[in-house]
């Protein structure tokens, strides 16, 4: 079983994840942008378009402007998620010594790595719990929720809970070293047995479930956001105003008398 989870399934996961996403993006790309439906006020340059993207990605601008109650949960959760993913990559690759590059001692770097991991892990846990509460507590959100919406949150909560537990109780945790050895084996296509730590195996398995589900779920909003903003936010330049045959440079023309009737109607 651990052989399957540790040395076979990861390859299946990567294949499904990659091909699944490509399949979804291909479906989107096959459909066209039929009409110009850019939202106004229209961006006047690509720099402004980039500004819209950046505001939404970095700050969740719309969520902040229109639903602060959602922002309080969603923004910290996503920031923590991004940090945790980044932390896993550099932490495992540099064995927690990544902060020596900004001048810290090796020991301090490891402590810093552990501290940041713990803090972001806890923020993410709190954020997810809050989003779950919100989904249940707010009438309008509950009514548009389907079982999958809750399962996503529960799956993420499961991953984060196990991760936090390993972080907070190092006796149950896993050192960077064995983790790196294992991941290196996977990446170089010479898989070695998964570290014999039940919590790590559960953590790793749940992450794989998440990645398998990813292309077939609303998690695709990561890509959907770009695909959709590509349609909705683009440069539009208005034609110049000014009417042909109208010259007011010498002042308003004196109101001309109309010879007969008010209506000229050629061809009646």
């Amino acid at each position: 079983m651990t052989f399957f989870i540790g040395q076979v399934l990861p390859y299946v996961t990567v294949v499904i994840f990659t091909l699944g996403i490509l399949y979804r993006l291909w479906r989107w790309a096959m459909a066209r942008i039929v009409h110009n439906i850019t939202l106004s006020p229209f961006p006047q340059s690509n720099a402004q378009v980039a500004g819209i993207y950046a505001g939404e990605i970095v700050l969740f601008r719309n969520v902040f402007l229109f639903d602060k109650g959602l922002w309080i949960g969603a923004w910290p959760m996503h920031v923590a998620l991004g940090s945790v993913i980044g932390g896993h990559v550099v932490g495992i690759y540099f064995l927690g010594k990544q902060f020596t590059y900004i001048g810290l001692s090796e020991h301090l770097s490891e402590q810093m790595s552990a501290l940041l991991g713990t803090v972001f892990g806890l923020i993410m846990f709190a954020g997810l719990l809050y989003l779950l509460y919100r989904r249940l507590a707010i009438d309008s959100v509950r009514k548009i929720s389907v079982p999958g919406d809750y399962l996503h949150l529960l799956l993420l909560l499961g991953i984060v809970s196990v991760g936090n537990f390993m972080r907070l109780f190092p006796a149950y945790g896993l050192e960077y070293g064995p983790a790196r050895e294992y991941i290196t084996g996977l990446v170089t296509l010479h898989p070695v047995p998964i570290p014999d730590n039940p919590l790590f195996i559960i953590h790793f398995l749940l992450v794989q479930v998440l990645l398998i589900v990813f292309p077939f779920s609303k998690l695709m909003h990561l890509f959907g956001m770009f695909a959709n903003r590509w349609i909705m936010n683009r440069v539009y330049l208005d034609p110049a105003p000014g009417l042909p045959g109208v010259d007011l440079s010498k002042g308003v023309p004196v109101v001309r008398a109309v010879s007969e009737g008010g209506v000229t109607s050629a061809g009646v």
Binding site: L70, A74, R135, V141, K218, H221, G224
Partner: peptide, 8 residues
């Protein structure tokens, strides 16, 4: 395909 049902 991209709605997350945040309810905003």
């Amino acid at each position: 395909e991209s709605c997350v049902k945040c309810g905003l």
